[in-house]
Amino acid sequence: MNMQPISGGFSNAPLQSATAFRAVLQAMSRPGLWQAIDGAAPPAPLSQASGALILTLADPNTPVHLAGTLDCDAVRGWITFHTGAPLVAAQDADFAVGAWDDLQPLDRFAIGTPEYPDRAATLIIELDGVPAANARLTGPGIDGEITAFCPGDRPTAFPLGLDLILTDGARIMGLPRSTGLEFL
């Protein structure tokens, strides 16, 4: 019997998900700064950070889209077992997980409506190592400006837009729609 789907969840969900949530909250409120997030041991190729994000935020009420190599039995089984989140196509997703290239084109994802801009997808973008900073970030959460690596631009018509969380191993960086991006 394959035990993989049931291992790797939080051993103490109330406390671990609280700690993981604070890492995400910090990431989204301080764009461009990396935050440690752990507690999850999902099956490859899903990163620890993405695993923790999904355990913390996804449940049967939040459709999840898996892109590229992440859309495999091991990851699907793990997410379904631990969260009950329905796995869906890009346009129906609250959360989407994948490599930047696999998530393209980004205009498939919901960016909210003028009355309800919150009804927009959050993209969890898996990086494999973080290249040098290539963009200047400004906006809420940033004291002046900061430089960071961004995989590319995203459709934004504030207040509508996509909110991005970059992952690298067991750390995350937030890139909410409110962040101004200027590629260097």
């Binding site: 109330p14 406390l15 935020l57 996804a58 909110d163």
Partner: peptide, 24 residues
């Protein structure tokens, strides 16, 4: 539960908080 609310409720509030932070 820890901090009174059940985990499903906390997740729902946490998702709302993240969107709130993204759209100040």
């Amino acid at each position: 539960n820890f901090a009174y609310l059940d985990e499903e409720t906390k997740r729902m509030i946490r998702r709302a908080l993240l969107k709130a932070v993204a759209i100040p």
